[in-house]
Structures are given as structure tokens and as C-alpha cells.
């Protein structure tokens, strides 16, 4: 079954991916995605019916730790890279 990548699909995926693709970039994205999906469809040749998905391959088990804070107050360090800040906090455009 071939998956069709049309403009609506690119629009939908770009909303999910938070990317803005206009004009030529959008056409390119569509063509690239079509090629990759066609390539990925090769996997349909393999029977995976009775195979469980391998999320990880090292046979690890869940790793638990106590939920305690171990790092100190490094607010200044964390804010040093912020593109905009005010009163010791990140500054963003109004959200409502």
C-alpha cells in the first residue's frame, strides 16, 4: 500500500513539527518525503507479524531513583543562554 504525500499532509506534518515551509521549500519537502516513504515501504517485504518491536536491545530493566533535587540554584547559569529574560525568568510573547 503506497502512502500518498500531498500538500495537506505536508501542511499537517509541518504544524505538528512546528516548521514553516513555504513555496519551494514546501515542494522540496513533499518530494523528499515521498521518496523516503517509498523507500521505507521496502520494509513491507518482511513478515514482522510475530515479532515484538525492539525498543531497546541491551535487555535493560527500568532504572529507578528517588525523586530528590540534587543540583543547587543555578538560575543565573540557566538564564544566561535565554534569548530574552526579565526579572530572573524567561520572557516569551503573550500566550493568551
Amino acid at each position: 500500500m503506497a502512502t500518498k504525500i500531498d500538500d495537506d499532509m505536508i501542511e499537517y506534518v509541518s504544524i505538528l513539527a512546528k516548521l514553516e515551509l513555504e513555496g519551494e521549500a514546501r515542494a522540496q519537502a513533499r518530494s523528499d518525503m515521498e521518496k523516503m516513504i517509498e523507500f521505507a515501504d521496502m520494509l513491507n517485504e518482511i513478515d514482522t507479524e510475530d515479532t515484538d518491536p525492539a525498543v531497546q536491545v541491551i535487555d535493560m530493566e527500568n532504572v529507578f531513583r528517588d525523586d530528590t533535587v540534587t543540583n543547587g540554584d543555578n538560575r543565573e547559569d540557566m538564564l544566561a543562554n535565554a534569548p530574552a529574560k526579565k526579572n530572573g525568568q524567561y520572557m516569551v510573547p503573550r500566550t493568551f
Binding site: 502512502t3 521505507a40 513491507n44 514482522t48 518491536p53 525492539a54 536491545v57
Partner: peptide
């Protein structure tokens, strides 16, 4: 874009899970 697509609802099983099963094989 490709990663978002293969994880999106409706395509997750056909692509992402399929790839994880292939990885197991």
C-alpha cells in the same frame, strides 16, 4: 518532517512500529 510523519497518528504502526520490529529481526 520524516520523523514527525512516522510518529503521527495513523502512520505510527505502519512505519515507526514496523521499523522497531525490523530492528528486532
Amino acid at each position: 518532517m520524516l520523523g514527525t510523519f512516522v510518529l503521527s497518528s495513523g502512520y505510527y504502526d505502519a512505519y515507526y512500529m514496523k521499523a522497531l520490529r525490523t530492528k528486532a529481526l
